[in-house]
Write a protein that binds this DNA or RNA. Sequence first.
DNA 1: TTGTACGCGTTATCAC
DNA 2: GTGATAACGCGTACAA
Lengths: 338, 338
Amino acid sequence: MDRSATIKDIAQALKVSISTVSRALRGQPDIHPDTKKAVLALAEEMDYCPNKAALNLVGRHSQTIGVLLPNLDYFFATAVKGIDEEALKHGYTVMVCQSNESYERELINTRRLHESRVDGLIVSVSSETRNTAHLQRLSTRGTPIVFFDRDTADTSAPRVLLNNRHGGFLATDHLLRQGCRRIAFLGGPPSLSISNQRFDGYRAALEQHGHHPDPDLIVHGSFSKEQGYLSTLELLSKGPAPDGIFAVSDRIAIGAMLAIREKGLTMPHDIALIGFNNEPLTDLLVPSISSIDQPAFRMGRAAAELLISRLCGEHATFEDVRIEPRLIIRESSQRQAQ
Amino acid sequence: MDRSATIKDIAQALKVSISTVSRALRGQPDIHPDTKKAVLALAEEMDYCPNKAALNLVGRHSQTIGVLLPNLDYFFATAVKGIDEEALKHGYTVMVCQSNESYERELINTRRLHESRVDGLIVSVSSETRNTAHLQRLSTRGTPIVFFDRDTADTSAPRVLLNNRHGGFLATDHLLRQGCRRIAFLGGPPSLSISNQRFDGYRAALEQHGHHPDPDLIVHGSFSKEQGYLSTLELLSKGPAPDGIFAVSDRIAIGAMLAIREKGLTMPHDIALIGFNNEPLTDLLVPSISSIDQPAFRMGRAAAELLISRLCGEHATFEDVRIEPRLIIRESSQRQAQ
DNA sequence: TTGTACGCGTTATCAC
DNA sequence: GTGATAACGCGTACAA
C-alpha cells in the first residue's frame, strides 16, 4: 500500500539533492560517475517509475494521444492496433474512447480526453455528429487533431481517409460488368461522408455506363446486419426487384444476404451482392461475399504518423492522406468466369 | 495555440483568489451566490476544463483505470466496451494497452500504465507470461488488480473468469451425446489456464462417459485459424481420424473446418465440430458452427465493477466472479434432431 | 465569505 | 559536480 518511489525518496536515501537524482536519471552530463551509478542502482532496486502527471504539469505535454471512435468493431479495433503500434514507437500512450455513435457521448468523451490533456487527438466522428465545434475548440487551443476514416465538413484538420468514392465506383462498376442493370444502394446514415462518398462513386459508375440512380433503389440506415436485412426485405417486397446490391458495409451485406435467401432468391444469379470492409469470415460464408478492402491497420498507423509528426512541430505536413481501396471479387457477385 | 484556461486565469479575471474559484467550481458551501455565479459563468465562457494531471498529483489518484489485454479481437473489444461503460458511470477513464501475446510487450505496457499512475488495473495476461512479478509489484504498491478471463497461478488478486472447465465439459459432453467416440482437443497455448481448464472439462466429460483422453488426439497451439487448419490437417493425415473436434476458439474451429472440407470429409457426419466464444458470423457459416457462448460485455462490466468497488475502499469483496458459459448447438455438431 | 501558503513529483534555472 | 528554488494546476488547511 506504500506509494511509488519518487526521486525524493531516492535523494533522501542517497543523501543527495533531488536535482542530482533527476539529472542522473536522465543521463545528463556533469554528473559524477559514482553518483550516477548509485542513483541508477537504487532507482532500479526501488523500481522507480517517473510520474507522468508531474511531467505533464511541468512540461505541459502528456505523451498521450486520444482516440475517439464510434465503436470498436473489426475495422476500428484493427486501426487502434496500428495507432498504438506507432504511438509506442514514439513514446506515446493511447487513450481510447467510444462514442457508440452518440453525439452526446462524443461530447463527454471529448471532455474526458481534454481533462487528460492529451497531446493530440485522432477522431472518427459519430454518425449523429453534425458539427465539430467541440473539436474545433480543442484544436484552436493547441491540441492537434487528425480526422480518421469519417470526414467532416466544417473543419480544417488533416485527415486520413479511404478513397470512398473510388471504393463505391469499384463496387458498382464491378456489378455493372457482371450484367446488373438495377443496382440497389444500401447506404449508411446519410449524415456520414463515407456513405455519401461511396454513393458518389456508385452514381459515377452508373452514369459512366449510361444509367442513372433510381431513387426507389436507394436506402439509408445504420451499418448493422439488422438494417441490411430489413432494408432488403423492403426492397424485395415493393416494385421490381434489383438484380444487384451494393452495401456500404459487410454487415449490411450480410443482412441483405439473409433477406435474399429468405425470399428464395439466389446469389449471384438473381441478385449480385457486394459489401464494404472485407471483414474476416466474409470469405467463408456461402456464397462468399465480395467486398471492398480497406486497410485498417495501415490507416491507423498513418493517422498516428500524421499526428505525431505535427506533435513534433512539423507543421509542414498538413496534407490529407488518402488510402486506396481494393476490389475483392468473391462468389456473391461473380456471374461470369474472369 | 493558447493553452487551456486554469482556475488562475479565472481568478485573475474576476479579481478573486484561486481558492475561491476552486471552491465555487466544486460547489462547496460558504460561497457568496454572486461570486459563485460569476465564476461558473466565466468558467463556462472560457471553456474551463480541470487538469487531471494536477488533480492526480495533489489527490494522488488519476481516475483512470488501465486495461492490459493480449489483443482487441471480438471478445476483448466487446469486453472493453463493458469496462468503459462501467468506468464512465463512475467517472473513470480507460487506458487500453495490447500486449500482442508478447511478454516483453506486456512488461512495457505495465510500465506505461504505471507511469500514468492508473488507479487500478484489469489484466488479461499474454500467452507468453509465465510469472506476474511485474503485476505483483504494482499490486503491493497499492494499485489494485483484477484479472480478467485468463487466470494466473501465482497471484492473489480477484478474478473475473468464465467457468472454462464447465465450458469444456458442455462442449465435449454434447459431442459424446451426438455419438462421437474419438474426440480431438484443439487447445491453445499450454501455458494458458483457459485452455487447460477447458481441457479439464473435456477430460471430465470423457471420463464420465467411460472414456479417456487419447494423447494422439490432443494438440496445442495458438488461437488462430491458421493453427486450427494445420493442426487438423495433421490429425487427419496420421492414424485413425477423429469423429469429433472440440476447438478452444472459434477461429481454431474455422481453421479445422477448412481442413476437414479440404480432405473431402463432411460435418457433422464424418466429424462433428464445436468451437468456443460464439463469435459473430459463426452462425452464418455453412455448416453453422456450434460454440460455447462467453458473455464478453458482461464479463468486462463485472471486472470494472469489481475493480471500482475495491477502488472505493470496499476491501470486502475480494471474491472471484465466475461467469457461466452456454452451449450453442448448430449444424456443425448436430447429428440427431433434438 | 474570502485569501494565503503549502504540497503533490518533476524539470529547469540559477547559484555555489 | 551539486544543491536550492521556482514553476506547472490544483486542493486544502489555516488565517483573516
